[in-house]
Simulated scan of single mutants.
Amino acid sequence: MLAILGVWLVIMGKARLGLDAIKIFFRHWIFWTVAGSVGFGVFYALITFSSVFAPGWVVAATWQTTILATPLVLLAFGRKVPLKALALTVIIFIGVILVNLEQASATGLREVLWGALPVLVAAFAYPFGNQLVWEARKGEKSFVPSIDHPVMDDPFCRVLLLTLGSLPLWVILIAVTTPPPPSAGQVMQTAIVAACSGVIATSLFLYARHHARSTAELAAADCTQSMEVVFSLAGEAILLGHVMPGILGWGGIALTMVGLMLYVTFQSRQ
């Protein structure tokens, strides 16, 4: 991600802005290490761990609990969240349970727990890290540094800052797990994920979040992640030839999608 971001900023004529981002990082290195390690490090590490034990569509469906986590994270930052909206997350949570029940019947409870529990933690880590950045840009919280600089308005620079902040966690994980050198295939797959998910998708997501002016708009932006389930299913069926979910799985996905649509509809009326 660092290599791709560096090349992209140079191509876009934003090399000086990228250097400013590095200066901002060292000026507030504790903040960015916390935000990056939680929002990027914990998130990516746990999602990757879960993918070993569960299909991508199950991980994506379970990930929808981040919609449940977002209001709780906003409340933790002292932001007001409509209580009625929280009730709609019950529908989403039931859908997630159905998806994992079907997976449990196919693979066993142990695999489901190893596949689902890390995703639940990641579902809180991602919005927490992103909200730290949003609060730093707003400059309204005493426990978060106020960072009023053009780099905070550029989504690629924000991704760069979070990526830099996550590096200490990756170093610790490598030291603890001592993995073997990656194969050529792993390097290529990682490069694709870094470009599509880490740089493009995350930059677009942070761009949308940056323009949110209320908790309702923040929650609506986070709800867009619901389409992960659809794309994961399509990708696994077309590219990997995986078996499609059964009746219980489809029912869980349907409940999740309906709950998310109702959630966004309710938020848009606030």
Results as ranks from 00 to 15, higher is better:
1 M>F: 08
2 L>C: 10
6 G>L: 08
9 L>H: 00
15 A>E: 08
20 D>V: 04
31 F>H: 07
34 V>G: 04
36 G>F: 03
37 S>E: 02
39 G>L: 02
41 G>T: 11
42 V>D: 08
43 F>R: 14
45 A>F: 13
46 L>H: 11
47 I>V: 09
48 T>F: 07
50 S>G: 15
51 S>C: 15
51 S>T: 13
53 F>H: 14
53 F>Y: 13
64 Q>A: 05
65 T>W: 01
67 I>D: 00
68 L>M: 06
68 L>Q: 06
72 L>G: 14
72 L>P: 04
73 V>R: 06
74 L>F: 11
74 L>V: 13
76 A>V: 13
78 G>Q: 12
79 R>L: 02
80 K>Q: 11
80 K>T: 09
81 V>S: 01
81 V>H: 08
86 L>Q: 14
89 T>C: 12
91 I>Y: 00
92 I>Y: 03
92 I>K: 13
93 F>T: 15
96 V>G: 09
98 L>E: 06
98 L>M: 09
103 Q>F: 01
108 G>S: 11
109 L>Y: 14
111 E>L: 07
112 V>Y: 00
115 G>L: 13
116 A>V: 06
116 A>H: 02
117 L>A: 09
119 V>N: 08
122 A>G: 05
124 F>D: 05
125 A>T: 15
128 F>E: 04
129 G>N: 03
131 Q>I: 04
132 L>S: 02
133 V>A: 08
133 V>G: 12
133 V>T: 06
133 V>R: 00
136 A>I: 03
136 A>Q: 01
138 K>G: 07
139 G>M: 06
141 K>P: 04
142 S>I: 09
142 S>M: 01
145 P>H: 05
145 P>C: 12
146 S>C: 09
147 I>V: 13
149 H>P: 11
151 V>D: 00
155 P>L: 05
155 P>A: 03
156 F>K: 00
158 R>H: 05
163 T>E: 02
163 T>L: 03
165 G>E: 05
169 L>A: 03
175 A>R: 08
175 A>D: 06
177 T>C: 12
178 T>F: 13
183 S>C: 04
185 G>E: 08
187 V>K: 11
189 Q>R: 15
191 A>P: 00
194 A>Q: 06
195 A>I: 10
195 A>W: 10
195 A>L: 15
196 C>D: 05
197 S>R: 14
198 G>A: 05
201 A>D: 04
205 F>W: 04
210 H>I: 04
210 H>P: 00
211 H>N: 14
214 S>D: 09
216 A>R: 15
216 A>E: 11
217 E>T: 12
218 L>G: 10
220 A>D: 03
225 Q>T: 15
225 Q>A: 15
226 S>N: 14
228 E>P: 10
230 V>D: 02
240 L>E: 03
242 H>C: 08
244 M>S: 15
245 P>E: 01
245 P>Y: 04
251 G>L: 02
252 G>V: 07
252 G>C: 05
252 G>K: 08
252 G>M: 03
255 L>Q: 11
255 L>P: 07
257 M>T: 10
257 M>V: 13
260 L>E: 05
261 M>T: 12
263 Y>W: 10
265 T>G: 12
268 S>I: 00
269 R>M: 02
